[in-house]
Design a protein around this nucleic acid. Sequence first.
DNA 1: TTCCAACATTGGTCTCGCCAACTATACGAC
DNA 2: GTCGTATAGTTGGCGAGACCAATGTTGGAA
Lengths: 146, 146
Amino acid sequence: MEETPVRLAAKPSWLLTQLAVHAHRLASEGFGEVGGRGYHYRILAALAESGAASQAELGRRCTMDRSDVVAALNELAADDLVERATDPHDRRRNIVTITPAGRRRLRLMEQALDRVQDDLLEPLPLEDRRTLTLLLTRLLTHHQRT
Amino acid sequence: MEETPVRLAAKPSWLLTQLAVHAHRLASEGFGEVGGRGYHYRILAALAESGAASQAELGRRCTMDRSDVVAALNELAADDLVERATDPHDRRRNIVTITPAGRRRLRLMEQALDRVQDDLLEPLPLEDRRTLTLLLTRLLTHHQRT
DNA sequence: TTCCAACATTGGTCTCGCCAACTATACGAC
DNA sequence: GTCGTATAGTTGGCGAGACCAATGTTGGAA
């Protein structure tokens, strides 16, 4: 009486997108507790990992549109989690830096996100988790090149 | 210079949501060619598979909010792909039926979606595709109960 | 009959992804 | 040096998907 059509349930694209909904919901709840959302985490993580960068570079690293980078950066800057300064060597660019407060926020989001992974993969034993990660990585890298 | 932060790339939730973006894009392109979008396909598939149903039931089957069912049904009905009739036994309900045109449209969407699966899983051999589908199904059924 | 539950509908929100247009700056070819 | 092109940042907008709150109607059980 409440069954999903097998036409849907059998399709990998359905499994993937529906599971992504759950993953996104879990992540949003986790992020919501510490403030911020997905876009904020991506940028903070990129800055902490590869150092200061221009906005265009951040967009490329995080798979984000430049306009969305602008918006997210405005929000992050409003909370002093990140700083913008025009590049003296190329005045078109903004050099974005993460602040100490930004690093603290990142740590919180990181912890929340780690808990999300556990919730998400809960029913799978470690071996299966590794297999899944591997398969997904293969697919994603393929589609990123294309 | 353009690498995704490993903090992201290593997380299953990231792999899942990003891959879902590609899956969704492929599906949208496929549906776009024959008209309609994801919500339309879900409803048509549910109707063809389990027969006429009330809107609330469709929402439960397709994992859709009732308000979104209303909107999608308006669009489908405008193209004569489905028909709404108030249930004589329960005048709160609308009994939704798929029309012959609806079945034709469904076939087209079905074919488009099948091509999407191939594109999506292209780099994986059959055995790996089965494994992936199995793992995803395990996770999805778990999260649907919770 | 009264009260609660389910149904359909309206209208609004949020996230994410994407696109078009505009300005300012850099840089290479000429 | 000037011209054309490419890149950077910004603004404003759109669509899909998921979701939420309020409303009015109808059914059914206490």
